[in-house]
Amino acid sequence: MTDAPVRRAAPSDSPAAPSSGAAGRGTPSLSEVAAAYPDPPARRRPAGPRLRRLGKHVALVVFGFVMLYPLLWMLASSFKPTALIFREPGLIPTEWDFSNYTEGWNALLDPFGHYLLNSAIVVLGSVLGNLVSCSMAAYAFARLKFRGRNLWFAVMLMSIMLPIHVIIVPQYILFSSLSWINTFLPLIVPKLLATDAFFIFLMVQFFRGIPKELDEAARLDGCGHGRIFLRIMLPLSLPALATTAIFTFIWTWNDFFSQLIFLTKPDMYTVPIALRTFVDATSNSSWGPLFAMSIVSLIPVFLVFLFGQKYLVKGIATTGIK
């Protein structure tokens, strides 16, 4: 795009061209691009620093315990009868009670699985929506030249600077006039329309980190923007896409306020609303079942993170460009 010499962040000389074929055909094929980012070399592990590694592990475990204490306490409490949770707040229950799980699962009008399913629908729709729409918008902002780009970018950022509490009422009126209240549409459609500026900005930053020579070259090779986007940008941004997917999943899974407002019938309720109905400041609260179901609802997000983070960790080279 720019005719000025490409600015390099790395101080050392630019590494040499990856393969001789590039010069011959004028542009590198994508497999050659991939070759430019080889696998990280396997670190050799000499026996000497073994002690240091052990020390690291110990530190990580201890720190991990501090991080996890509240969660462990919640886990422990989920096995205590409600009356004992506050009277005997220790980490090891004196009396194991598994009934919180069965009780909590059946405490509301539908089995808790129903709410998990509803949440799953909302979450998957949102993840899909954000991945597609935000990456598209991000490509435009990161790579395309058009009039008013900075202005539109500012407008986009502005849209996340207002607290939800003042826009929820107009939003409700809008969705109500579309007859969308008590459906999942107000929760999913906005994501399909890239209203989550956070992720657009995130991907813009990642796209801008991808060397421009790659798409310049592809362009000259006759690739349109669609192909560059699909075949170069997306595969090279797998960590960013994984981040988007994971965060959308977690944040939607935990999002309380908009789900509370837009879903009115109990059979449409999602996990955060269901969890809130265990506790009421003005009457009895079922803390035991609440903790039990909180643990249950943590499992899917934890698993998603556990699997998802693999993709965060995969370097560009291993993303399998064909």
């Binding site: 405490a107 509301l108 009008l109 109990p266 109905t277 265990f278 506790v279 009421d280 003005t282 009457s283 009895n284 609260s285 079922s286 079942p289």
Partner: peptide
């Protein structure tokens, strides 16, 4: 408004 017991009896 309320918690789970009330929701069940009300239903």
């Amino acid at each position: 408004w309320g918690s789970d017991d009330r929701h069940q009896t009300t239903q």
